[in-house]
Simulated assay, not measured.
Amino acid sequence: MTRSSFAGVDCGVAQAVDQLGDKWTLVILRSAFAGIMRFDEFTEHLGIAANILADRLSKLVEVDVLRKQKVEGDGRAVAYLLTAKGLDTYPLIIFLNQWSERWMGSSKGRRIQILERKTDRPIREVQVLAEGGKALTAHETYMCSDASGSDVLNRSQTIVARRRGNDLR
């Protein structure tokens, strides 16, 4: 079965992919975090076709990741600014960069370094942390349904439990 949208799927990852999963969307967000704001700047920076950029920007505005704001002093110019929802994608952009540097990095060294503005020191790697601050791996965690539940998680757990003999951990 081919799906055109994950919007109705009871899964946070699927819903996030529905809004952010296009190959241009994340590089547009990366550019926005780097200070690119105007349509012509995105076009110049990314080398993206105008129709594709217009479509992606429109979708990001529609799902409240970016917002449009008229540029003062230029009646026609519009800036695309990150909303609170858009700013919340920052750890994802940083993680993707760190993951890429680790697994597809340049033989010449790191291509991008992320520094804390206040100290000019490199930031730490994005990690999954236990409540006490200990870094955890995928093997040290598991998923379970929360208050509202998840049909997708429940179905996957049923499949895994059947294979493992009902041990969900």
Rank of each mutant, 00 (worst) to 15 (best):
G165R: 09
I52E: 14
T43G: 13
V128Q: 14
G47E: 02
L129S: 11
V65P: 02
G109C: 10
V61R: 01
A34M: 10
M143Y: 15
A14E: 06
G73L: 00
V160P: 03
P91D: 01
D74Y: 11
S156D: 08
G73E: 02
G133Q: 07
A32T: 12
A54N: 14
R162W: 11
H139C: 02
R30P: 00
L53V: 00
I52R: 13
R30A: 04
L129W: 09
R56E: 13
D18R: 03
V65C: 06
V13L: 15
R124T: 08
A54Y: 11
D55T: 06
L26Q: 07
E131C: 08
M104L: 14
P122H: 10
I48C: 12
I159V: 14
R117V: 09
D55C: 01
S31Q: 09
R110P: 07
S107D: 12
R164I: 00
C144G: 13
Q113Y: 05
G47Y: 05
T158E: 15
D120H: 13
F95E: 10
D40T: 08
S31N: 12
K108H: 12
L153E: 03
G132W: 01
H139P: 00
H45A: 13
T43R: 15
R169C: 00
D22W: 12
T141E: 03
L29F: 06
L92D: 02
L129I: 09
K59C: 02
D120S: 14
G165Y: 06
A32L: 02
T141S: 10
L46N: 05
V71P: 05
I94H: 05
S148L: 07
R110F: 06
A161K: 15
L29G: 02
C144A: 15
R117I: 09
D120K: 13
A32M: 01
S5H: 07
I48D: 04
S5D: 07
T141W: 04
D88K: 09
E131M: 07
W103H: 15
Q19K: 14
F6Q: 04
V152P: 05
D64F: 01
F95R: 08
L29N: 05
S150D: 05
D64Y: 04
H139F: 11
L153W: 09
A16S: 15
D167H: 08
D10E: 04
D167L: 08
K134A: 09
W99H: 14
V128P: 08
L81S: 04
